[in-house]
Write a protein that binds this DNA or RNA. Structure first.
Lengths: 196, 196
DNA sequence: ACAATTATTGACCGAACGGTAAACAACTAA
DNA sequence: TTAGTTGTTTACCGTTCGGTCAATAATTGT
């Protein structure tokens, strides 16, 4: 053994994630990251390799914890429509009550737009997240359709993708800085339109 | 009078816009722009001021021409629902058959996500575009509701915002590189769900 | 106590960044 | 023809970028 690390990897990744969330991958400099993580440049490189590797690790930690939280919502809620409502509510709150209000939108959607077209590694992580969230939606909608609470005029899988698309829309639209209560209203309308 | 400019301002802005569309504002360097516009650095600075001014001018030209095209669709179509269908179709095509397929998504949504939170000038241009597009939607939906073709259980204005949000969603979701026919399918479903 | 190992620190690197300016070229008015 | 004006070219500027490395600090096994 030797000198132990003075920080927790996952704490550092969390801080890095917040920095990337606030400014995007490109616009977040190593200096920004050093300040956000409260670490020297050398320590960051020793622990994570380089800026891109740091990003993919932070992004993976983010997608994994987010997926776990969403999955938990859908497995513990009383019904599919209750789960969907909680999901939308939490999603909106998560975007708003963060540090300094700089974390607007979703790191997933932000990163898809900035990086997916030309960053293969990021794309893999992000597409994986999209796919598994859609699987959660599909399962809930299928269940909801079988009990008659969800509309049955559309295949569950297609409806799940539509929910995904709508979610992406909310995440993007919120970045215009519009009133959150307006968005809550729109979201409630949309949710109701999914029900039978 | 003196030596005339050897290029057209709007042509140069169009080329700049394509470059910004492909890589985003930050990631597009002046060298990228010089190549895309086929202009020397000095000429660009003489004509447009600096990188940010070039961007806002290119963005304004883009939002203005796009708005004109969309407005034309809604004023010349046979009915509100026909207009909405043409709008969604055109929107999807515009994202796909561009040069080298690098222009994915929408410059408006891409820019909102990258810049709106911290770039006040860009935010003004973009919010203006969002607002006037929503006005077009609202007018069409109001008309559609009065003739009974659109659902009337939601206020036209709210439904217009929902359409806006859904459009944002499509623009973002497309960046995952998913199959466009899948998206067309989802979009058709969504459009039908707006009708009475 | 002391070697071995690993983390931290801070100075440093070349490259790329946005931006500037002087020299040159092309046009007009007189 | 020439003076005045403006566009184009190109070399150059300071700054910031991501990244490296040698020196130093902290810990463990023996």
């Amino acid at each position: 053994m030797a000198r132990p690390r003075e920080f927790e990897i996952s704490d550092a990744l969390e801080k890095a994630m917040e920095a990337f969330w606030a400014k995007g991958y490109d616009a977040t400099s190593m200096v920004d990251l050093m300040q956000a993580m409260n670490l020297n440049k050398g320590s960051i490189y020793a622990a994570f390799g380089n800026k891109h590797a740091l990003f993919t690790k932070a992004l993976t930690q983010y997608t994994d914890t987010t997926y776990a939280r969403i999955k938990h919502i859908f497995t513990s809620a009383d019904s599919p429509q209750a789960a969907m409502k909680i999901f939308f509510d939490k999603m909106l709150v998560e975007q708003s009550i963060s540090t300094e209000n700089v974390k607007t939108g979703s790191l997933m959607v932000n990163s898809i737009i900035e990086l997916a077209p030309h960053d293969e590694e990021a794309k893999i992580i992000l597409n994986r997240q999209v796919k598994r969230l859609e699987a959660v939606f599909t399962k809930a909608i299928t269940h909801g359709q079988s009990t008659g609470s969800f509309r049955s005029d559309t295949e569950a899988k297609d409806m799940a993708i539509e929910v995904s698309v709508f979610t992406f829309g909310i995440m993007s639209y919120r970045k215009t800085g519009c009133d959150i209560t307006k968005i809550q209203n729109i979201t409630n309308n949309y949710l109701n339109s999914l029900l039978a």
